[in-house]
Design a binder for these strands. Structure first.
Length: 423
RNA sequence: GGAGAGGUGGCCGAGUGGUUGAAGGCGCACGCCUGGAAAGUGUGUAUACGGGUAACCGUAUCAAGGGUUCGAAUCCCUUUCUCUCCGCCA
């Protein structure tokens, strides 16, 4: 949600920033609506002021048993009341219109977010690790999994249709062990609080984190009007909705391991095999709630947390700064981490860490008390550490052997109780 | 799912139609008192929006949204949340 005061004071800058995201100039129409709304509000308030004053006098007159005076005052108030409803109704209409526009515009990009049209204009920050040179043709993970008899899209399709898989045995365990490793790293070394949140949420929670009202078609909705979360970002960020936090408690750092549910409307035909793009997948999510001063540093820290996990798993990755055209709706600035996928001979997204500034905080009405005792909106950040399914896939492919077995990364061998998954 | 009771300021709590943004208490801030502290004592202590250069003024807010009324924390309706009992249940 945008700050109408900011738009009033910086209309040109507002339009210029939106233009960087490919959105047409809005400030003129927004400010016209805003002016109209304020004029109507003032008018309505003046009428109410008169009504309130007269009503008080009626009370006094009645107390003094001056019925004649009371009756004449009532008549004047009745006259005022004829005008009021129309003005109030008009104000509501204008306010709703303004709200609709403001809530459907994406956040303004940070100064250091590069301009660009789509993912091709993203800027690579670094590469970590060297993709392994295979002395055989690396197999895609779904082939490896099927040959091991531990992964089946066909079986899942019988239950649930496309974009689901069934994992079994050592692969199912590896998925669990991976999530555990991620959670332990975040809680034991990086100060995150582990949370087990609801997976079903109301629409106002999704509005708070920006999925609604614009992106409802990407979500699954239940028959009781609850929605399945597309990411734990929704649950974790909304933990502080409508709260006024004491500033010494910031930053708050939450992590959760949850299933995520996405309809993948609009991605028909893309990544149709394997576990890269599923209707349901596990993800370990990080969310930070900070002051405005803290958020830039927190964003770097958060991204480092995700990188640390990739490094410990020995997975080659690159870090990319998203351009304005590829960034999510709420984000000011986003780093993506892309893991090396041998079968595709390319890097694929495995984590996305975003600073949302006060954009979600405005929607959730989450504030903190600053040193002067003033309420200010917090900044919110979220990132994956990591998408568990994609990490599993990356391990399978990067650690595969010529015989179709999969070596277990050293940090997981203890928890797995073995050093490889063999046919 | 059935029956009932409730949701008032940072917290507790009064208040069933008329200067109630809301008594009283706690907490907090500042002052007095004190050698210092405690106790005591005085004053102050919400948020949002609109108007105004400003001091300040206005409007709204007693879970949320509607309604009745000249006037609603108080009456009515809807929604929501909490609690108790019963039923069902991992």
């Amino acid at each position: 949600m945008h700050d109408i005061k900011f738009i009033r004071e910086n209309p040109t800058q507002f339009d210029a920033q939106l233009a960087r995201r490919g959105v047409a100039a809005q400030s003129t129409s927004i400010l016209a609506l805003d002016a109209q709304r304020r004029a109507l509000q003032t008018e309505a308030q003046q009428l109410l002021e008169q009504r309130n004053a007269a009503s008080k006098e009626i009370g006094a007159a009645k107390a003094a048993k001056d019925e004649a005076k009371a009756a004449s005052l009532m008549a004047t108030v009745n006259a005022l009341k004829e005008k009021l409803p129309a003005i109030e109704a008009e104000e509501r209409v204008v306010a709703t219109e303004l709200e609709t526009i403001l809530s459907s515009l994406p956040n303004l990009p940070a100064a250091d977010t590069p301009d660009g049209k789509d993912e091709h204009d993203n800027v690579e920050i670094l590469k970590h690790g060297t993709p392994r040179v295979f002395d055989f043709t690396p197999q895609p993970h779904e082939t490896l999994g099927e040959k091991l008899g531990l992964l089946s899209a066909e079986t899942a399709a019988k239950l649930s249709g496309s974009r689901f898989v069934v994992l079994r045995g050592a692969l199912a365990k590896l998925e669990r062990v991976l999530a555990q490793f991620m959670l332990n790293t975040l809680t034991e070394q990086f100060g995150y609080e582990e949370v087990s949140p609801p997976l079903l949420v109301r629409d106002h929670a999704l509005y708070g984190t920006g999925q609604l009202p614009k992106f409802g078609e990407d979500l699954f909705k239940t028959t009781t009007d609850l929605w399945l979360i597309p990411t734990a970002e929704v649950s974790l960020t909304n933990l502080v909705r409508e709260e006024i936090l004491p500033s010494p408690t910031l930053p708050l750092r939450f992590t959760a391991h949850t299933p995520c549910f996405r309809s993948e409307a609009g991605s028909a035909g893309r990544d149709t095999t394997g576990i890269l793009r599923q209707h349901q997948f596990y993800k370990v999510e990080m969310v930070s709630i900070t002051t405005p001063e803290q958020s830039v540093a927190e964003h770097e820290r958060m991204t480092t947390c995700a990188e640390t996990i990739l490094q410990r798993l020995g997975l080659p990755y690159r870090k990319v700064l998203l351009c304005t055209g590829d960034m999510g709706f709420c984000a000011v600035k986003t780093y993506d981490l892309e893991v090396w996928v041998p079968s595709q001979n390319t890097y694929r997204e495995i984590s996305s860490c975003s600073n949302c500034g006060d954009f979600q905080a405005r929607r959730m009405n989450t504030r903190f008390k600053d040193e002067n005792g003033k309420n200010q909106f917090v900044h919110t950040l979220n990132g994956s550490a990591l998408a568990v399914g994609r990490t599993l896939l990356a391990i399978m492919e990067n650690y595969q052997q010529a015989d179709g077995s999969i070596t277990i990364p050293a940090v997981l061998q203890g928890a797995m109780g073995c050093d490889s998954i063999k046919p």
